[in-house]
Simulated scan of single mutants.
Amino acid sequence: MTGRGEPNEFGRANRRRGEVEAAIDGERRILCLTLGALAELETAFGVPDLSALAARFSAGRVTATDLTRVMAAGLRGGGNRISDDEVAAMHVEGGVAACVAIVGDLLEAAFGTTDVSRRP
């Protein structure tokens, strides 16, 4: 996990490109919400535009399905060939709280500031 803008312990992610790096399933992986990943999320969440997508997450309520979709889109945007179902079966050290933090970091990198979920 990157920790909201500080350099991460892995050193490969480029925040200026919207990248986040996280340990998922025992591997260091780059996640990025590219334009394609954001378009995918607009469709998945049935929102008309990026403003509505950002508003949906800034409300601070997320489901496990939301976490899975955003992480999967971010992983695909980071160059990983992976399905939502594969992401749902992955282990993230730190559990759900770590997943929330990863998604929050991703959305923050993509949109600037986002309060995805009143993270711990």
Rank of each mutant, 00 (worst) to 15 (best):
E40K: 12
G60D: 03
R69C: 05
S117F: 10
A37E: 07
R29A: 10
E6D: 08
V96Y: 02
G94T: 01
V20F: 00
G46V: 01
V116K: 10
G77V: 08
R17H: 04
G26W: 15
C99G: 04
A72V: 01
G26V: 09
A73C: 09
R81L: 11
D85H: 06
N14A: 08
N80W: 15
A64D: 08
G5C: 06
A13P: 03
D85L: 13
L50K: 08
T43N: 10
R76G: 05
A44S: 10
T65K: 13
L107H: 07
G112N: 13
G3R: 07
E40C: 10
R56E: 10
G36T: 13
G74Y: 01
G77T: 09
R4F: 15
R16T: 11
F111W: 12
T43C: 06
L107V: 06
L53P: 00
G104V: 01
N14C: 03
L50W: 07
T34L: 06
L53Y: 01
D49S: 07
C32H: 02
P120Q: 09
L67H: 03
G74I: 03
A110V: 01
V100W: 01
L33D: 05
L31D: 09
G94W: 04
L31P: 10
T2N: 12
A59K: 10
E108F: 11
E40M: 12
R28W: 15
A89I: 00
D49Q: 05
V87I: 06
E108V: 12
P48V: 04
E9Y: 03
E93D: 08
G60N: 05
G3W: 02
G77A: 11
T114F: 10
A89Y: 02
R29N: 07
M1A: 12
V70R: 02
D85S: 13
L50V: 01
A39L: 13
G78E: 01
N14Q: 07
